[in-house]
Amino acid sequence: MKATLITDGAMLEAIAPEWEALWRRGGGTTPFSSPAWLLPWWEVFRPGDLFTVAVRHDDRLVALAPLYREDGPWGRRLLPLGISVSDYSDVLIDPEHREAAGAALLALLHDHQPLWDLWSAEEAPPDAAVLTLLWGASWTATIEPHSACPVLMLPRTVADLPAAIPARTMRKWRMAQNRVGRRAWRIERAEPAHWRPLLDDLFALHQQRWISRNQPGVLADADVRRFHQRAVPRLLEAGLLRLSRLSIDDRVAGAYYGFDQGLRSFAYIGGFDPAFAFESPGTILLGAAIEAATHRGASEFHFLRGQELYKYGWGAVDRWNQRLTMKDRA
């Protein structure tokens, strides 16, 4: 095992193909650890000094800890790339080399301990690889609950959805389908050659919704919008993105931004025009995403961070992210 420290963005971009290969062969369980998501994040935000650890075995990438170093009031903290816009974060470790690669990763961080004070693994999901690292006697590690991420367990077939989703929500969904069925409506999905109008509509709808509440909303920030503009084409190319737009009578009524990966689907953000509240465009788009996830064989639908009531209305149950904080005693 050979571990190296990557401190240059160009070097990080250069390993993108290896990074994606590691992520796809089992190193990553969510889109938030993919290069399609994290490289655009680093390009736009760069909140500190890049401090990413790469581990190779026989010249093959077998582990990656996408980190940066923040020098702030809590000292020199190592934090995950993607922080704030990511609902999950983790290190990537090849399942065939989990113990040895993890040990090499920790050894490199130990060797560079004079350069940092604390490693804070934020928003680690319950199955995160970072939670399985074998800490030696020189390390102090503490863990605490971080954020609730409600998850709906999906049935095997679409026909079984009424048994998985509470009856009240099923009635609401069917009623919304009946209401839009009386109008001229369609749902279209973003494609690699046609995504910008759908993303712009999402920005506009989301902002419209939050302005009505006298709040800016998460997409009001120019850098956040620029990040998504860079991430969307990469996510589409990687086959991860589900960006959809609902039109009713040739007017955009709602938009949905989520991800599909393996046995999981993820609902990231959405927006709708309050003028179409009667037709419930949010319910239509979310129900369509859940139905599509079930149809393709997914077993979990993740509503991601936050305990909004509508998530539990769909039958989701809390699953808690963890915050793992590590110090090297050396």
Rank of each mutant, 00 (worst) to 15 (best):
L38M: 10
L64P: 13
H57W: 03
I93F: 01
H57I: 11
Y68R: 02
V55L: 03
Y88M: 02
E43Q: 15
I93M: 07
E70F: 09
T30Y: 07
E70C: 12
D49S: 14
P66A: 06
V55Q: 02
V91R: 10
G102F: 02
P40Q: 13
F45T: 12
L92R: 07
H97Y: 11
A54H: 03
T30W: 06
T30S: 15
L79W: 05
D87L: 06
G82Q: 07
L79Q: 04
V44M: 12
I83T: 11
D59Y: 01
A107Y: 03
E70D: 14
R69D: 03
A104Q: 07
A103W: 01
D94I: 11
H97F: 14
D49E: 15
D49N: 13
S89I: 00
A36W: 01
S34V: 08
P66M: 04
G28I: 00
P66N: 10
P95S: 11
V91K: 05
R76M: 10
S33Y: 02
L92Y: 11
A107H: 12
R60G: 00
G26K: 06
P66E: 02
Y88E: 04
S89C: 15
G28F: 02
V55E: 09
H57P: 00
D49V: 14
E99D: 15
D71K: 14
T52P: 07
V44N: 03
G72D: 15
A36T: 09
